[in-house]
Design a protein around this nucleic acid. Structure first.
Lengths: 106, 106
DNA sequence: GATTCCTTTCGACGTTCGTCGTACATCGAA
DNA sequence: TTCGATGTACGACGAACGTCGAAAGGAATC
């Protein structure tokens, strides 16, 4: 019987998204770079983001984004693929993501 | 010769506003309530906001907002009047304030 | 002067943050 | 089976956070 080798990834329900958690998640240069990258490319592996922090730091930022409901991650072999939960975010907080991205320095 | 009795209030230049500082400032229920109140009423005295924290905590939140460039405060007697720096915010980060306010729970 | 009101400063508290190094687990390929 | 690549978990660190109470300053009023 198949079961998860690693603790399963927890994603909040769309209805449970919290604006303050989302804003906090966006209020960091590394994390906002991740979000902008995902807004352009649909899906990415963890190691392929144009950020310059240690791998363990990157894992931390992914957790913050994931627990805030900003991103979704799925396992595939020893890779972890990440997508933006754009529809859920739009539904709960219309225009927030794009407005923030437009305001952010490139 | 007139001079300030209290340390003068420091406000960042409009050109120095930092998006991450602004997002962090908005990512707190008490502070976002202050911003929403100021978006409706132009100017308010410190003690007149519909928030329920200790006075010293309120002072802390005002400092966070002021140093992020979100609000402006001026002295008048023993009152401190607060306004939203809406034009400066719009200029640097168009639509961010209203989009966030629209997304926030009432 | 004395009093009262508005707001701040200070110090404290427990918590969370962003960062990292190290160690580990998993997978795919040689 | 061994190796390298990918990504996580854990523990640590200094710094900042949100909160409060106590004390104080300055202004208006009695």
């Amino acid at each position: 019987m198949a079961h998860a080798r690693r603790p399963p990834l927890v994603h909040p329900e769309a209805a449970d998204l919290n604006l303050y958690a989302v804003l906090h998640a966006l209020a960091d240069p590394t994390r906002l770079t991740i979000v902008r990258t995902l807004r352009e490319d649909l899906e990415r592996a963890c190691g392929t983001f144009p950020v310059s922090v240690a791998p363990s730091t990157l894992t931390h930022h992914f957790r913050v984004l994931r627990e805030a409901g900003v991103i979704h991650q799925r396992e595939d072999g020893n890779r972890r693929w990440t997508t933006l939960r754009y529809d859920d975010l739009e539904n709960r907080f219309p225009a927030v993501v794009d407005t923030v991205l437009r305001a952010a320095p490139a």
